[in-house]
């Protein structure tokens, strides 16, 4: 499907979604509360069939956090980017690890690096950081570590 067709289809599925134009792929902004049901539709709808989550990351904008999901369909070869704005003080979003298994590890990484709480995640614990690392999230923009970090 082309971006225009995707846009029409997704507006049908989720009227509350807003779009960003100009990029190579269609950017879709959604509310975190809509994410789980929307993700199921993206994965299971026969004309969308987004079976491949190839990037899951988070951005710290200092005022809020944004979860970013890059989805691709190995069958139709179309891609989209889904973004959800989270509250920086209490970032929470539903896990999608049961829809795309790769999200399991990636969500753990976002959890430790940005402190996003993935609701209903089966195994939400530190992935890369060592044992006993509490509270600080290294990829937040205000993270400071004068001992181990070299200021560039």
């Amino acid at each position: 499907m082309t971006n225009e067709e995707l846009k029409t289809k997704i507006t049908e599925l989720l009227p509350a979604a807003t779009f960003e134009e100009g990029g190579e792929w269609l950017n879709i902004n959604i509310e975190p509360a809509d994410w789980l049901s929307f993700a199921r539709q993206l994965r299971n709808d026969s004309s969308l069939y987004f079976d491949y989550l190839f990037c899951l990351t988070c951005i710290d904008w200092k005022t809020h956090l944004t979860m970013v999901y890059h989805l691709s369909s190995t069958k139709y070869r179309h891609n989209i980017v889904v973004k959800a704005k989270l509250d920086r003080n209490k970032p929470e979003i539903e896990t999608v690890s049961h829809i795309w298994r790769t999200a399991d590890f990636h969500e753990r990484e976002v959890y430790e690096m940005f402190g996003v709480n993935f609701l209903n995640h089966p195994d939400l614990r530190l992935l890369i950081l060592p044992d006993g690392w509490e509270g600080k999230n290294p990829l937040r923009k205000d993270f400071e570590d004068p001992v181990n970090m070299i200021k560039l």
């Binding site: 190995t74 795309w100 790769t102």
Partner: peptide
């Protein structure tokens, strides 16, 4: 695909449907 092991998918030509990227 579910675990997004793209490299492995490439080697073994894993996909469904001929339209696939693999």
């Amino acid at each position: 695909i579910r675990n997004s092991r793209r490299f492995i998918c490439k080697i073994y030509g894993a996909a469904e449907g001929d339209e696939s990227i693999y």
